[in-house]
Amino acid sequence: MAFTLPKEAYTGKVYSVTIGTDDNTVAFGGENVLPFHIFEGVVPNRPVIAYEIQDVPPDDWPENIQKPFETVSNDPVTWAKFCQDVLKAKAITLRLKGTHPDRQNRSPEDAAKTVKDVLSAINVPLIILGSNHTEKDAAVLVAAAEAAKDKNCIIGKAQEANYKTIVAAAIANNHKLIAMSELDVNLSKQLNILITQMGLDREKLIIDPMCSALGYGLEYTYSVVERIRVAALVQNDLTMQAPMLGDIGMYVWKVKETQASEMDMPQWGSTEERGITWEAVTAIALLLAGAELLIMRHPRAVGSIERVIEELY
């Protein structure tokens, strides 16, 4: 019995999404095969990793992930410049955490100012996220989208409860948009349809199927991402062909495994190495499942993932 190459019949393609302006753009997505299957199709872009920063000091982050940024994280502008200039970030994610009512409850105007300040300090593309408070995000993201008008950013996250105003703001100010639903292929599909029906070009959409950390439901995210990607490529489902986001850092750096001391958990080994590996392993799993855009925190986790991505091409 002679070996013949078993081919997969692909009929669909993931949209390529470009963010940023002038010479400082990055693109992700665009492939017509499963993740890293360069042996059987076209994969024009590599996944992009965006460093996560926030508008307020990260005092809610565990010590080991505060450390790499301790000299810069008091100010979002310094922090952003550090990521761009020192860490060579390809993109930056500004999370407007301080706008959350349970946090500093910063106003949409304050948030807009932070966005403007950060944008004027960096060249790399910017992703602007709310605090994941659906009501407040609707107001904050509208102000942020206006402040970043025509900078070709990504704004998010639009969810079922608040997508209308956020979608309108993305359209009016020429941004890309993250649509997030909770770990369900059909919910994601439905939200994408609602959003495109409002007039957002479907090639401006990025799907966030909701992330989970390794050990804390990663298998659910993994399979939802994989199913969305198979639907896009094999079943040519036009509503599922947007690139996907893995919002990793936020989920990883709150689980016990990234924080518990080695003294408390001798069987778990070094806390620092464990945290970094936890973030990196979560990232590689989601890349293999089909995510094209990752939001991450630790420079060593990002560095190792970039090296492995290099090796996958």
Binding site: L214, G215, E257, G269, S270, R274, A285, L288, A289
Partner: peptide, 28 residues
């Protein structure tokens, strides 16, 4: 682990590494 190996050979088995890989394997 994710893509079809039935045996994976490592050169070192630090505890933090084991925990990460065991957990990924258990998840998938």
């Amino acid at each position: 682990v994710a893509k079809y190996s039935s045996i994976i050979v490592l050169s070192s088995i630090e505890k933090w590494k084991n925990l990460s890989l065991f957990t990924l394997r258990q998840n998938l």
